[in-house]
Every structure is written in structure tokens, then in C-alpha cells.
Amino acid sequence: DSDEIVTPVSQKCPKADSEKMCIEIVSLAFYPEAEVMCDENVEQVYVEYRFYDLPLSETETPVSLRKPRAGEEIYFHFSKVIDLDPVEQKERRQFLFTMLIGEDPEQGHLKFTVVSDPIEEEKKECQEVGYAYLELWPMLVSGRDILEQDLDIVGPEDQATPIGKLKVSLQAAAALQAIYKEMTEDLCS
């Protein structure tokens, strides 16, 4: 039959949901009244997070975007799949378990940092303008991935007054549940 199409056998079969996680830095906005909005030194920003052994070059947005104007959202759509293979990435799974039980430095939170990236690099230095925190434990309990959730961004000095919001997605519920189960079984046995 000449209608037939040919599809080469796919080389890679997709990893099970429990053996990977995906973090997306979706978008960022600052509140109009936030000090950063009138800070001329902040011209463009990027966002980064840290994950165990991954180099920052893989966990920071590859571009800096112009600082959002009042009422404007800027979009990174920066998503990264992190391999959590039970054999090859045992240490990452162990690390996530310590995060789940809150015994990591950020006490169970994935911390995102908003960084000001000066345009003329010689003159100024990169400067942290705010932080956003995503708690992992509720995700384990609910078993639901996080889709485009707004996190408060707080400034370095005043951790009580939000200066904006960072939108993130996290697909990790299946992996977190599998990791928690296997680690607690290990503890009990």
C-alpha cells in the first residue's frame, strides 16, 4: 500500500515519571510599589536555583530579560528535566529525601534566586534582588504536580514583604512519592 508511512523505531523510550523531575521557571513580575521597580541599577534579571550536583549553568535561565514594567510579566519558560534514575542517580534521590524531611540547608524548600544582571558588566556586579521558596512536602502529601504556581518573591533584607511573584511548575510528585517510600522502607528495615 503506497499510503503507508514509515516511522523509524524510536531509540529512546521515555523515562518513568518516578525516575525524573521537571522544573520550569515560567515567568516573573514585580509589584509596582516594590523598590526594585525604581532601582535604575536593576536593568535586566535572570533566575537560578540550585540542585545538588548540577552546575549553575544548567539551573539558571540561559538569558536575562529586561526588568518587567509595572503590571508586566516576563516569560522565561525555562524547563529542565532532572534525571533521577534509581541506579545512576542514587545520591540525587537521597538529596531529595533530605529535602522532603526538611534536613537540607533550605529546610525542605527549593529556593529560587532572582538576580540582577548589569548590562555593562565591567561597571557593576550581579546582585541578588529576591528569593522565592517552593515547599516540597505538600507535593508529597497531595501527590499532585505543581502547575504554574505563583510564589512570593521577597527581598534580601525584608523577608516579610513580597516584592513580586515568580511563576513555576514542578513535575515531581511521582518521583517524590517513590523516593519517600523507598527511603522510609530502608529506615524501617
Partner: peptide, 19 residues
């Protein structure tokens, strides 16, 4: 443009907007 879902043809699983 919008790099979600890999529609820009630039990679297998790590995506980002291209400006």
C-alpha cells in the same frame, strides 16, 4: 519564541524561550 514542549526543535527535554 515560545520554547515550551520542544516546539522550536532545539532539544529533547530541556526547553526555554528563544529571543
Amino acid at each position: 519564541g515560545d520554547g515550551r514542549h520542544g516546539k522550536l526543535g532545539l532539544g529533547m527535554e530541556n526547553f526555554t524561550n528563544q529571543f
